[in-house]
């Protein structure tokens, strides 16, 4: 259990949010030209990092807006929060 600082609403309990998984997975521009391997990579394969992970969250029980979070998955400490479309902070 931890707090998430929603860039629109401020700090709220994690239970108000829903996790949206790994961030910055770009939807293929030409889906018809993808091989099965590339589809598998896009749809299913995940880094599933133990350590600093860039991920998406949505404030389901709040403003319902999506944004990005940088979190250490080994201890759930959040390092940074940034809006969709903003440049991600460097991975230190």
């Amino acid at each position: 259990m931890f707090l998430i600082n929603c860039p629109y609403c401020g700090e709220r309990e994690q239970s108000e949010f829903k996790a949206g998984g790994e961030a910055h997975i770009v939807r293929p521009k030409q889906p018809t030209e993808l091989s099965d391997d590339q589809w598998a990579e896009y749809l299913f394969m995940r880094k599933n990092i133990k350590g600093i992970q860039f991920e998406r969250w949505v404030h389901t029980h709040g403003c319902r807006k999506w944004f990005n979070v940088v979190r250490d998955t080994s201890n759930d400490i959040i390092k940074a929060v940034y809006k969709m479309g903003e440049k991600p902070p460097p991975n230190k």
Partner: peptide, 14 residues
């Protein structure tokens, strides 16, 4: 399960 990736061996109270 919680819906977020975590290796902390701690889950949420809710």
């Amino acid at each position: 399960t919680d819906d977020y990736v975590s290796y902390s061996q701690k889950g949420s109270h809710d």
